[in-house]
């Protein structure tokens, strides 16, 4: 343990209201602390710069998975274990369940939260590609009120996002429009389990009369943020998923992502694998 623990504070509010008041009263002083699976790693390494945290783990207002006819709504504290065991999510949002089952090991899945995964804003995070492909929306709450915004566009740059210091991520909402879609999720990590993604690919698609009616394509670990490849999607609309289309789509993908070399992989590898995954996804739509 390299951190000087006495300098850190983790305070436990009794309710969401109390947490929001604390966030509002001293802007920037307090930050949320959910499952801690990202924050504690930084703490251990002596690299957790911020000192004061609000323990939101116990806030039931931020828990639970609810479904209406049109949406499934997940509390920000929903854990990976909860995601995997929810029957609606398993049926209609299998990529999210797969992402959850491939996140860390069981102990991490019991503790890590979707909200933490989103706000931690790692480009290598495994749920965001699935969430983006499902057109998720997120709710931010503060004492000023609540606002819903599309998840797409929330992240603006490496660890940059549209959230104010007094806001908490409260809920995530998924439109139940996945019937008839092909779901394709593939995490390419450093090993088969307990791995950080080198490339993470999530896509859905639908064909009609042999042509691509709709695709949503998202790639992680290939840019400062997880990328929804809108240009590639546009280029694919109305095309047959043949070799020529695949080649054109790959060329488009290359323009939308900007992978780098790091201690886990190389830019070259990430680029090539992203192209392969796109090609493989499109090939699955061919039959």
């Amino acid at each position: 343990m390299r951190a000087f623990i006495p300098n850190y504070q983790l305070t436990t509010p009794a309710s969401l209201a109390e947490a929001l008041t604390l966030l509002e009263s001293e802007p920037g002083v307090w930050k949320p602390f959910a499952g801690g699976t990202d924050l504690m790693v930084l703490l251990e390494a002596g690299r957790l710069a911020h000192r004061n945290y609000i323990n939101i783990w116990g806030l039931n207002e931020l828990r639970g998975i609810e479904a209406t006819d049109t949406h499934v709504t997940l509390g920000a504290l929903t854990t990976y274990t909860e995601v995997q065991t929810n029957p609606i999510l398993r049926r209609e949002f299998p990529m999210l369940c797969q992402a959850a089952s491939e996140t860390g090991g069981l102990a991490i899945q019991n503790r890590g939260t979707l909200g933490g995964n989103i706000v931690n804003a790692s480009p290598a995070a495994d749920s965001p590609p699935a969430l983006l492909a499902y057109d998720a929306e997120i709710e931010l709450v503060s004492n000023r009120g609540s606002r819903w915004l599309p998840y797409q566009g929330f992240h603006t740059g490496y660890k940059q996002m549209h959230i104010d210091p007094d806001e908490l991520l409260a809920r995530i909402r998924l439109p139940r429009n996945t019937a008839g879609l092909t779901h394709y999720y593939r995490k390419v990590g450093t090993r088969k389990a307990q791995a950080i993604s080198k490339v993470c690919f999530a896509a859905v698609g639908k064909t009609g009369q042999g042509k691509l009616m709709e695709t949503r394509i998202v790639v992680g670990s290939v840019a400062p943020i997880v990328v929804r490849c809108v240009q590639t999607e546009a280029a694919l609309r109305g095309q047959r998923p043949d070799e020529e289309t695949i080649a054109a789509a790959c060329a488009s993908l290359v323009r939308e992502i900007s992978p780098i070399d790091d201690i886990r992989s190389t830019a070259k590898y990430r680029l090539q694998v992203a192209k392969n995954l796109l090609a493989d996804f499109l090939a699955t739509l061919r039959t």
């Binding site: 436990t12 602390f33 504690m40 323990n55 783990w57 116990g58 090991g105 019991n110 503790r111």
Partner: peptide
């Protein structure tokens, strides 16, 4: 996982759990 304990019926890594929780 060497630090695994069970909290309220679920396994967790005790190195990642702060006492406040």
């Amino acid at each position: 996982g060497a630090c695994t304990v069970i909290i309220d019926g679920q396994i967790v890594n005790s190195c990642l759990v702060p006492m406040a929780q």
